[in-house]
C-alpha cells in the first residue's frame, strides 16, 4: 500500500487541480478561442492524472528513512515561529532568534557560536540590505 500512497496523492492533486481548472472564469471573448485560460491547466491536469493513475497501478517505492523526523519537526516549528514573528519583531530580530533556536535544536551548545551567529548574521544582513543597498524593510510592529 505504501508504494501507492504517493501516486494516489498525486492523483488527488491532479483531480483537485482539474476541478479548479474547470472553475477558472472565462470572459466572453476568450471562451470561444482554441486556447484560453483553461486550456493549459486542463491539459496538464489530465496528463498528470493519467501518469499518476498508471503509477498507482504499478506502485512507486518510497524511501521511508531511519525515522529521524524529530529534528525536522523541530526545525519546521522554528521556521513557523520565525515567519509568525516577522510582522511583530521585524525581519532581522526574528532571524537572530531563529538562528539561535535552530542551532540549539540541532545540538550546538557553544555559546560563542550561538550568540555570534544570532547577532552577527542579522547585523550583517541589516547593514548589507538596509544600509548599503537602501532596501526598506518594515521594522516590525513592536518597534514602530
Amino acid at each position: 500500500m505504501t508504494r501507492r500512497l504517493v501516486p494516489l496523492a498525486i492523483l488527488g492533486v491532479a483531480a483537485a487541480y482539474l476541478w479548479a481548472a474547470t472553475r477558472v472564469p472565462l470572459d466572453p471573448w476568450s471562451a470561444g478561442e482554441a486556447v484560453n485560460a483553461r486550456t493549459l491547466p486542463l491539459a496538464c491536469g489530465a496528463l498528470l492524472a493519467l501518469f499518476a493513475a498508471g503509477m498507482s497501478l504499478r506502485g512507486v517505492p518510497f524511501m521511508a528513512g531511519p525515522g529521524r523526523y524529530g529534528p525536522l519537526a523541530a526545525i519546521v516549528a522554528c521556521i513557523v515561529a520565525f515567519i509568525a514573528a516577522i510582522p511583530f519583531a521585524g525581519l532581522w530580530p526574528a532571524l537572530g532568534l531563529f538562528l539561535c533556536a535552530a542551532l540549539a535544536v540541532l545540538g550546538e551548545r557553544r555559546l560563542t557560536v550561538l550568540l555570534g551567529a544570532s547577532i552577527a548574521t542579522p547585523a550583517l544582513g541589516w547593514v548589507l540590505v538596509e544600509v548599503l543597498l537602501g532596501v526598506y524593510i518594515h521594522p516590525g510592529s513592536l518597534w514602530s
Partner: peptide, 28 residues
C-alpha cells in the same frame, strides 16, 4: 521517465497559478 514527466507537469501546473497573462482572470 514517467517520474520526470510527472515532475515537469507539476512544475507547469505551479506556473499557471496567478492572473492569466492574456485575460487577467485569476487562476488557482
Amino acid at each position: 521517465v514517467a517520474k520526470s514527466c510527472v515532475a515537469a507537469l507539476l512544475g507547469l501546473m505551479l506556473g499557471t497559478v496567478g492572473a492569466d497573462p492574456e485575460s487577467g482572470v485569476p487562476r488557482f
